[in-house]
Simulated scan of single mutants.
Amino acid sequence: MFHLSKQELQKGLAGHTAQEIYQQPEVWKESLSIFEERKEEIYNFLNSIYIKHEKVRVILTGAGTSAFAGDILVPELQKQDQGNIQFEAIATTDIVSNPTNYLFKDTPTILVSFARSGNSPESLAAVKLATDIIDHFYQVNITCNPQGKLVINTKNNENSLTILTPEKAHDQGFAMTSSFTSMMVICYLVFSKDATANEKLQTVIANGERLVEDLVSAIEEVLSHDMERIVYLGSGSLGQFAHEAALKMLELSAGKVVAVHESSLGFRHGPKSILNDKSIVVLFMSQDAYTRKYDMDMLKELSGEPKDIKTVVLTETADEEIKKYANWAVVVNSSKQLLGNDFYLSLLYALFVQTLALKKSIQLGITPDNPSPDGSVNRVVQGVTIYPI
């Protein structure tokens, strides 16, 4: 698996993280089945809210990777549903520190909580604050842990709905991988108006099964470059996905690789100063023809830099122009069925960025399952004091 030795694949070294990255296509398939089994119940719950209120606010929330899941989903969900539902992504860390900026008494609100453990203090505090402040408050918990406090606290609550991810998505490694993508898949299915979602996800799954076998050779070529800094770029939803990509590298390299993110257009406005001769730029190419023009312009600009910058471009389909300007071009969709939006692409791009971070961690002599043995950061956040409002 990922050209790792038997020793490296031991649990507690890289074994949990490697398996949790590798298994994702299977986990997506199970997530789709979970949704199909509960679809009627889910729609009944949501429709009972929608018919009560002229307008409903849906806040996607979480902390860290769980927050980024909402950031990635909201642009696509809002584009699909421009009626009486307003989608927003607000991190629990923002809600807890500034509740009156984000929670409004007279606005009917569904809080969608993404949670791997369901025990993070900010997740629990955000729910408590919303319950106290908002008159018409509803919850959808999308979580990996049936024993988490988020689930236990909402049992028998008719205004709450819990959807559990597949059991194997409850990552045991430090970094969120299966949990992240499976929660996004379920949330997309719950709120999307995309009538082809099932079919498109089957295409994503088939490509994912191929990619987990094929990506590692390209990644090893990339890592042969003496990299100290890595920049992830994208536009729209993929610009938000770049945030998660940078966090994965930062987490699994224990901060030894400087990892930043920016939008393709925003990169020129100062952040480009970070580039030096030991930099790699990973560009997430949009499938949207209009957006793609801006991504391509950035790629062309980077290829003309005097510094020895290496570029990796992830793209849905093969493109001769990308091959001309990029050092490495990674095609994620080998089927004839185009995916149609950048959310689907983000799932396949996630396999690359997670595996890249895993392999870089091992290259640096770090233990990916526990990259911070000194406890400076933890799998479930610690040290948070929640103050009464």
Results as ranks from 00 to 15, higher is better:
Val258Pro: 07
Ala259Thr: 04
Phe68Lys: 10
Pro166Tyr: 00
Thr385Ser: 14
Ala195Trp: 09
Pro271Thr: 09
Ala115Lys: 09
Lys39Arg: 14
Asp295Gln: 06
Leu46Pro: 00
Leu351Ser: 08
Phe352Tyr: 15
Gly270Leu: 10
Ala350Gly: 10
Asn157Thr: 10
Asp288Leu: 11
Ser117Asn: 06
Glu221Tyr: 05
Asn207Val: 06
Phe267Ile: 14
Leu111Trp: 01
Glu36Ala: 15
Ser279Ile: 02
Asp374Val: 12
Gln354Tyr: 08
Lys11Glu: 13
Leu46Phe: 00
Gly239Phe: 10
Lys256Gln: 14
Glu220Arg: 14
Val212Leu: 01
Phe137Met: 08
Leu60Cys: 08
Leu299Thr: 11
Tyr344Asp: 05
Asp94Trp: 07
Val212Lys: 11
Ala195Lys: 15
Phe87Gln: 14
Cys144Ser: 13
Tyr387Phe: 10
Gly64Arg: 00
Ala89Arg: 05
Asn145Met: 02
Gly62Lys: 06
Lys193Trp: 00
Ala254Phe: 00
Lys336Ala: 14
Ala326Leu: 03
Ala175Glu: 02
Lys193Glu: 01
Val222His: 07
Asn327Ser: 13
Asp308Arg: 03
Ile85Met: 07
Ser253His: 03
Ser335Tyr: 03
Lys300Arg: 11
Glu209Ala: 14
Pro271Ile: 13
Gly234Met: 05
Lys310Ser: 04
Leu275Asp: 03
Ala169Asp: 07
Leu351Phe: 04
Val260Thr: 15
Ser361Ile: 11
Gln147Pro: 04
Ile51Ser: 12
Ser372Ile: 13
Thr311Pro: 04
Ser253Pro: 06
Val74Gln: 15
Lys256Glu: 14
Glu321Val: 15
Ala126Leu: 02
Gln10Pro: 02
Pro121Asp: 01
Phe68His: 13
Ser66Thr: 05
Asn159Tyr: 11
Glu88His: 11
Leu4Thr: 00
Val231Gly: 09
Gly118Lys: 08
Ser48Ala: 14
Asn159Arg: 10
Ile152Val: 15
Val58Arg: 09
Val58Asn: 06
Lys256Asn: 12
Ala18Ile: 02
Phe284Cys: 03
Met296Gln: 11
Asn157Gln: 13
Ala326Phe: 03
Ile389Phe: 12
Asp194Lys: 10
Gln78Met: 09
Ser279Pro: 02
Lys155Thr: 12
Leu356Thr: 05
Leu111Phe: 05
Ser182Gln: 10
Gln80Lys: 13
Ile280Arg: 08
Tyr138Glu: 06
Glu244Asn: 09
Lys11Met: 12
Asn198Asp: 10
Pro146Gly: 05
Ala18Asp: 01
Glu26Gly: 11
Val281Tyr: 04
Ile90Ala: 12
